[in-house]
């Protein structure tokens, strides 16, 4: 750890108070059982989100509120952390998200209204960077990756490389920064995220019928699950993967999540379980009296909370049955 862990005393004290105000499972259940999106909104105005959702005039604008809430959390963490690098590391994911959105807008003509104003690089600057092909404000790995996307796309015209190249660069950067900072908890988070992405890629590649070579190209290194462990089962039925990962900590996730994915053809259950898996890992942060862990955990808790609110609102607006929403709701951190 870069600094004495008691330097986090103030930040953790504040997080402890904020954690107590996270929405719990009970409240999510009530929101899911609400009769309409308007009723959900009314419940939100009676919660921590009173001021932000109180201003919402059109229910379809809720995305703006969710992303400003996220911005607000990052601002808060930036002011209380004794170690600003931590927040920069956690924001990097959003830089890459914005990069992907902008590249896709440029190459695939998808309209880009999904920028998230949270990354280390302000969105305006990022738009300009992509427009002018000038990525010098980004960390080296991301800059090189962004340039590579440009080169590769001109040759191959394959939109998949955008995600692929950028994700590989992102996780290499995250792992290397976590190692440099010597925070094993953070590295553990990234390793698990890498494993989950690799599992997801594996099923996708399997579903699309692409072979081992393609999986090798998309595989993210540095995870706990090696390429040999996963790549071997690509041409075999799912059962062999379930058996092979039966002894790892991903056993239930694979058994329940991937089976459901293959049965129903949608990854939503898997994605829920994957998020819950990360939540379970980060929950340790709740018991740490000092150190960066509670900050990392709280940030994730809020990200999941916003995701749940989005799921419920989208579900209610589209009049999905309560059960369909409920099975996708992520476990709460508290």
């Amino acid at each position: 750890m870069p600094i004495d862990d008691t330097a986090y005393a103030y930040a953790v004290g504040r997080i402890r108070a904020l954690e107590a105000r996270l929405l719990d499972q009970n409240r999510f259940d009530r929101m899911i059982d609400a009769s309409s999106a308007e009723e959900v909104l009314k419940m939100l105005t009676e919660s921590e989100y009173a001021s932000s959702f109180g201003e919402l005039s059109n229910i379809h604008d809720f995305e703006t509120i969710l992303s400003s809430e996220l911005r607000h959390i990052f601002d808060l963490l930036e002011t209380i952390t004794p170690w600003p690098e931590l927040i920069a590391i956690m924001a990097l994911r959003y830089d890459v998200h914005n990069l992907k959105v902008l590249f896709k807008a440029r190459y695939l003509d998808i309209k880009s209204n999904l920028l998230i104003p949270v990354g280390t690089c302000p969105t305006g600057k990022m738009v300009q960077a992509v427009a002018e092909d000038d990525f010098r404000d980004l960390p080296d790995r991301l800059r090189i990756a962004a340039e590579k996307v440009n080169e590769d796309f001109l040759v191959n015209h394959d939109p998949q490389v955008i995600d692929l190249i950028l994700d590989q660069a992102l996780f290499e950067e995250l792992i290397s920064r976590a190692e440099k900072a010597n925070v094993p908890f953070l590295k553990g988070l990234f390793i698990r995220q890498i494993d989950l992405i690799n599992l997801k890629t594996l099923v996708r590649v399997k579903n699309m019928g692409f072979g081992r070579e393609f999986f090798k190209k998309a595989f993210l290194p540095n995870g706990n699950l090696s390429f040999d462990q996963l790549g071997g089962s690509i041409d075999e039925p799912l059962e062999s993967l379930i058996v092979q990962l039966g002894m790892t900590e991903y056993a239930t996730l694979v058994d329940e999540g991937i089976r459901d994915w293959l049965d129903r053809g949608t990854a939503s259950r898997f994605e829920k379980l994957a998020d819950d898996y990360i939540t379970a890992y980060l929950k340790k942060g709740k018991w740490m009296p000092f150190g960066p862990e509670p900050l990392i955990g709280y940030l994730w808790a809020k990200e999941v909370e916003l995701k749940n609110i989005r799921l419920i609102l989208v579900g209610k607006i589209n009049k999905l049955p309560a059960e369909a929403i409920r099975e996708r709701i992520r476990d709460a951190y508290i």
Binding site: Y10, G13, R14, A17, L18
Partner: peptide, 16 residues
């Protein structure tokens, strides 16, 4: 140490 931690809590919850 306790003072810092307490200040963090009281920022959000002055009643404590």
């Amino acid at each position: 140490i306790v003072g810092q931690s307490a200040a963090g809590l009281v920022t959000e919850d002055p009643d404590k």
